[in-house]
């Protein structure tokens, strides 16, 4: 190789926006599964998961047991990272930038600043741009999604209502985000600032949506997905991939259900394939009617 060529190859840049959003792009059309042990992580990988979320307790158990939910024990996360070759994500509390720094130091591939854990800061989310590791954040509507992207989130997911096995809130949030995006594409240039004001969102991002007709980062679904049909429904509504939390390892036959949900996200618009893969999967997780939950039990209202 000549010296001239060597000059071109010496300037590596790490942690760029393109590299962060790039990993989110690689996960598209895939399923990210919550796991609490190395064995569960292997089951998820063998079923075809694109990534796992390393946790101490799945949301359904956090909901049941109560108390303060915090970042998982690093030992637990490292065991899971050791067990699989696919990316490993982990959750930190909203606003807890030190938990996030610890997760980055551990080498996790994606950080979920998550409403499933007890918030550490009720006013401020983490300023995510300085991190080399990408972040995903939950959103209930477009304004919330754009505030998180403004802070540096490289992926957005619906909040849904985690740990319920009930897809209704994820559907509500995805429909709202998609409707708001379509509305913005129809606005004239002189209406965008007022829209940014009413959404509480950065003007530049509202303008970007107006020009491109989509979020500037991948838009995934999460919160209450329990069946292959739920996963396919979220894809049909515009999700680009799906997180499944309690839905797999709280079901009767996690291996089969995990495989079926992976297939459903790929073949989401092929009912004949969905019919085949949905057969005899055993009991799904029991599930909760979200309307029976008191306001204080709702996870989606955490963060803004």
């Amino acid at each position: 190789m000549s010296d001239g060529e060597r000059i071109w190859t010496s300037e590596r840049v790490w942690g760029t926006w393109r590299v962060k959003v790039g990993l989110a792009e690689m996960l598209r059309g895939g399923v990210i599964m919550d796991v609490t042990t190395a064995e569960q992580a292997k089951i998820a990988e063998e079923a075809g998961a694109v990534a796992v979320m390393a946790l101490e307790r799945v949301p359904a158990d956090i909901r049941k047991e109560g108390g303060v939910a915090r970042m998982a024990d690093p030992e637990r996360i490292l065991e899971i990272m050791e067990a699989v070759t696919i990316p490993v994500m982990a959750k930190c509390r909203i606003g807890h930038f030190v938990e996030a720094e610890i997760l980055e130091a551990l080498g996790v591939d994606f950080i979920d600043e998550s409403e499933v854990l007890t918030p550490a800061d009720e006013q401020h989310h983490i300023y995510k741009h300085p991190f080399k590791v990408p972040f995903v954040c939950g959103a209930r509507d477009l304004g919330e999604a754009l505030r998180r992207i403004g802070e540096g989130a490289a992926m957005i997911r619906t909040k849904g209502e985690a740990g319920t096995g009930n897809v209704v809130e994820a559907v509500r949030h995805m429909r709202l985000i998609m409707t708001e995006i379509r509305t913005i594409t129809q606005l004239s240039d002189d209406e965008l600032m007022a829209k940014a004001k009413s959404l509480g969102a950065p003007y530049e991002l509202v303008k970007w949506i107006h020009d491109h007709g989509r979020l500037p980062v991948p838009n995934f679904a999460a919160g209450g997905i329990a069946t292959p049909a739920d996963a396919a429904l979220m894809m049909r509504l515009g999700a680009e991939a799906v997180f499944v939390g309690s839905g797999i390892f709280k079901s009767a036959d996690p291996e089969r259900r995990a495989r079926a949900i992976v297939d459903a996200v790929t073949y989401y618009d092929r009912p004949e394939i969905l019919a085949e893969i949905s057969r005899s999967l055993g009991e799904p997780m029991r599930g909760l009617d979200v309307r029976t939950l008191a306001e204080a039990e709702l996870l989606q209202v955490r963060g803004w």
Binding site: E5, W8, T9, S10, E11, R12, V13, W14, G15, T16, R18, V19, G22, L23, T85, P87, E104, G107, V108, D109, F110, K132, V133, P134
Partner: peptide, 15 residues
């Protein structure tokens, strides 16, 4: 994954 995990992901000019 020979370059490492996500924090080791990078961009570089290549001829």
């Amino acid at each position: 994954n020979a370059y490492g995990r996500q924090k080791d992901s990078f961009e570089a000019p290549v001829m």
